Simulated assay, not measured.
Amino acid sequence: MHTLQISMYVLALLIALALLFDFMNGFHDAANAIATVVSTGVLKPQTAVAMAALFNFVAILIFHLKVASTVGKGTIDPQVIDHYVVFGALIGAICWNFLTWYYGIPSSSSHALIGGLIGAAVAKSGTDSLMMAGLLKIIAFIVLSPLLGFIFGSIMMLLVSWLFVRSTPRRVDKWFRRMQLFSASMYSLGHGGNDAQKTMGVIWMLLIASGSLGAHDPLPLWVIISCYSAISFGTLFGGWRIVKTMGQRITKLKPVGGFCAETGGAMTLFLATALGVPVSTTHTITGAIVGVGSVQKMSAVRWGVAGNIVWAWIFTIPASALVAAIAWWIGMKIL
């Protein structure tokens, strides 16, 4: 692989930009981890984000770096990667994240980043720069992650309904207010484990391209700690806008439904991370929430709101790719 001549200033700038994306990822996607536990009234927002941030960071002890490897080495031809491509990819992802956060749309930070990488790489070298095997796996999980979330959420809701069929609503509510603390923690653990690794992958590809690391060298510990720290701090500052959409506008949730949705979402994230697939935590929890709502009754799901979210998903990759292509061109002029 060719080695780029990148000044330490530019390298540091791009790493800082990657960590800013990671921070925004936590900020933007904090809602996914805490929406149900806040909207059901189990925890106050401040307590919920603190818990989510803690378990985002604890993920450093649990998961292998398979997702980071997929992003860093399995999406874009390493020969194409340079500081302009990384700059374009990050700017594209950050801009889309900010836009969707501002309007309270639960889009995917993960797919914004993938779209950014695609847009910048194609702008530089055309479609031959794409590693289709890795990208097809990611694209497949665009469909599979909400579907798995839906299935797991539905199964959990059916199972819980059967197990507690003789219990009073008050007893069920009291029990699952406690259980939701566990399910929300597990979902936050899965969120940190999958999402922080995407930024690690970007920094990894940058360090390899610059010659700071060999292609087969392990990812430095400082990168791992920095990325988990950034997403955790981002989660601490996460916004309420998307919490409201996720937690109540799709379907009204009670603690039992929140537990089932979070558990179904966590199961999906754990599976994807074990397989090394970067998935959307937004897609996952949305699918699980819809699954829980549909078990209660189909009319309990506000399909119009869910439809708007799906449209945001569809536009995420092309929109962030377009912004990234423009940012790549700008980067060529200023870096």
Rank of each mutant, 00 (worst) to 15 (best):
G247W: 05
G234A: 03
F237I: 04
A209V: 03
K244Y: 08
L17N: 01
L236W: 09
Q180P: 06
T281H: 05
F21D: 08
I285E: 02
N56E: 10
A68Q: 05
L221G: 02
V172F: 00
P255D: 04
W311F: 14
I250A: 09
I94V: 14
V49C: 10
T47W: 15
L213N: 06
G115S: 00
F55A: 07
T282P: 04
K198P: 03
F315N: 02
P218K: 01
K297I: 08
S320H: 12
I6F: 07
S185H: 06
A112Y: 13
G307Y: 04
V323E: 06
A52Q: 00
R170N: 11
T199G: 13
V223S: 04
V71M: 14
I250Q: 08
A215V: 10
I224Y: 09
Y103M: 07
L144M: 15
G291K: 02
T40R: 02
I62A: 09
A33H: 13
L20C: 05
F176Q: 00
Q248G: 01
P218H: 07
C227L: 07
I326V: 15
A120I: 09
F150Q: 01
I314G: 04
T282R: 13
F27I: 03
A324I: 01
L189T: 12
V172E: 03
W222N: 07
R302M: 06
T245P: 02
H83T: 03
F182I: 11
S109I: 06
I250N: 08
F150H: 08
S294V: 13
G293Y: 02
F87K: 02
L99R: 05
H283M: 02
F259G: 01
K137D: 11
L17I: 03
G134C: 14
G190F: 15
M267D: 07
M200H: 03
L322T: 10
F164N: 10
R166S: 15
A324D: 07
V38S: 13
L163I: 08
W222V: 09
M267N: 03
T36N: 01
L90F: 12
A133M: 07
G257D: 09
G257P: 12
L213E: 01
L65A: 08
L335Q: 05
V71Y: 08
V85E: 00
W204K: 01
W329F: 11
T268C: 12
F98A: 08
A35N: 00
G239K: 06
L213A: 00
W175D: 03
L13D: 10
A68Y: 12
T127H: 12
D195P: 08
M298K: 15
I76G: 06
L43N: 08
A272L: 05
F182V: 12
W313G: 00
A312M: 05
T168G: 11
V71S: 14
L253I: 06
A59F: 15
A12P: 00
I139Y: 10
Q79G: 15
L144I: 15
A59I: 11
G104Q: 07
A272Q: 05
K333L: 11
V165R: 11
V295I: 15
K73E: 10
M131R: 15
G134A: 10
V58C: 11
S108P: 04
K137M: 10
M132S: 14
Y228P: 00
V71L: 05
M131N: 15
L158P: 03
F141T: 03
D128Y: 06
S129E: 02
V290E: 05
I317N: 00
K254E: 11
W175A: 08
I330H: 05
G92F: 13
L135P: 03
H2N: 09
H283R: 09
L17A: 04
K198T: 01
